[in-house]
Design a protein around this nucleic acid. Structure first.
Lengths: 168, 168
DNA sequence: TCCAAACCCTTGGATGTCCTAGTATATTGC
DNA sequence: GCAATATACTAGGACATCCAAGGGTTTGGA
C-alpha cells in the first residue's frame, strides 16, 4: 500500500498537538493513534495468512471459538458475547461459514429462540490448520520483544477491565 | 453491545493455547488479540464523540490532517500516505466530506494527474470543534496511566518502525 | 521525438461492523 | 391464564477497508 515514510507520522501528530497548546493530551492521543495503526498492520498480516484457507479473521475467530467448546457447538448469543462483536456480525459470519460447509445451524433443544452453531468435521480440520499457520507465521514472529508482550498484556488488560469488558 | 463477562475472554484464550501445547506463542497471541479488542473499544468511543459533528473517524482524520497543513490543502496521494490507508479510502472520505461542504477538490497547478484536497472555512471550524471534543472526552480520559501511555508509545513505535511504517 | 512504463485517481465488487427495525419465542407479573 | 416485557436472531441500510481494473497524465529511455 505504501513505502516507508521518512518520519513517524504519529510522532509528527504528537508534535502538532503540542504546538497547538494541547500538550496535556498529546501523549494519550499518540498512544491511541498508535494502537489504531498497529491493529491495522496486524490485521493485514493475519488476513494474509488466512486467505489461502478461504477464511477472514472474523470467520477464523468464530471457528476457533467453536473448536474450543467441548461439544463443538455454541448458541449464537454466546458467541457474540465471547467474541465481543455485534450479534449481526455473528449472523453474517455464520452465513458465510455455513455456505462454506464449515458450520451448521441447529435449533436449541429447549429454547426455541436460540440457534446453535455447530462445527462440521471439515470446519474442525480447517480451524486446526489455520491455527497452526497463524501460530507459525504471525504469533511466532510477532515483532514484539518478550518483555514487551508481557507489558502489553498487562496494560491492555487493565484498560479492558476498566472499560467494562469483564469483571474478573 | 454487551454486559461485562465474568472472566477475561482473552486470558481464557491464552489458557486454551497453552492447554493445546502452543505455549510458546500463547502470550503473543494474547497480546495481539488484546490490541484488536482495545482498538475496537477506542474506535467506538471516538465515533461516539464524533457522531454529533456528523463525522466518522476516517473523515475526522483527513480533516485534522488538512488543518495542520500550512496551506490547508494536500494532494490525495499525500493524504493516503500520511494516513496510511488505501487510496480508495481517501477517495471515499473526500467524496463524503465534499458533499458535506467541508473540503473541495481542486486540480494540481502543475501535475494534471494529481488532485488537491482543500479545507473550506466550514471544514476548518468543524475540525477545530471536533478536535476539542476528542481531546476532552477521549484523549483526556483515555483510561491509561501516564507511564502506561509512555510504554505504549515506545513499544508500538518500535513495532511500527520494524513493520516498515517509517524509516526515521 | 515518441512510445512504453510509471503514476494518480475513480469505479465496482467483496467483507466486516454497527444500527434500526421486525418477527418469533420465553418469561414475568397481575 | 393472559397480557406486557424481555430475549434471540435476521433483514436492510450506512460506512469503511481493501483489491482489481480502467482511463488520463507524466516521465524517461530508445
Amino acid at each position: 500500500m505504501g513505502n516507508p515514510l521518512p518520519r513517524d507520522p504519529i510522532a509528527d501528530a504528537q508534535r502538532n498537538w503540542e504546538r497547538h497548546g494541547w500538550g496535556d493530551v498529546a501523549a494519550p492521543m499518540a498512544a491511541i493513534t498508535a494502537i489504531m495503526r498497529t491493529q491495522q498492520i496486524l490485521l493485514a498480516r493475519i488476513e494474509g495468512v488466512l486467505k489461502p484457507f478461504g477464511l477472514t479473521f472474523a470467520r477464523y475467530e468464530l471457528l476457533a471459538l467453536l473448536s474450543f467448546a467441548r461439544s463443538g457447538a455454541l448458541p449464537m448469543n454466546k458467541a457474540s458475547a465471547l467474541l465481543q462483536v455485534h450479534p449481526t456480525s455473528v449472523t453474517n459470519a455464520v452465513d458465510r461459514l455455513q455456505d462454506a460447509g464449515l458450520v451448521v445451524r441447529s435449533p436449541h433443544p429447549t429454547d426455541g429462540r436460540t440457534t446453535l452453531i455447530e462445527l462440521t468435521a471439515e470446519g474442525r480440520t480447517l480451524a486446526k490448520s489455520a491455527t497452526a499457520a497463524l501460530n507459525t507465521e504471525v504469533f511466532g514472529q510477532s515483532g514484539f520483544a518478550s518483555q514487551d508482550v508481557d507489558q502489553l498484556i498487562g496494560i491492555l488488560g487493565k484498560f479492558r477491565r476498566n472499560a467494562g469488558d469483564f469483571a474478573d
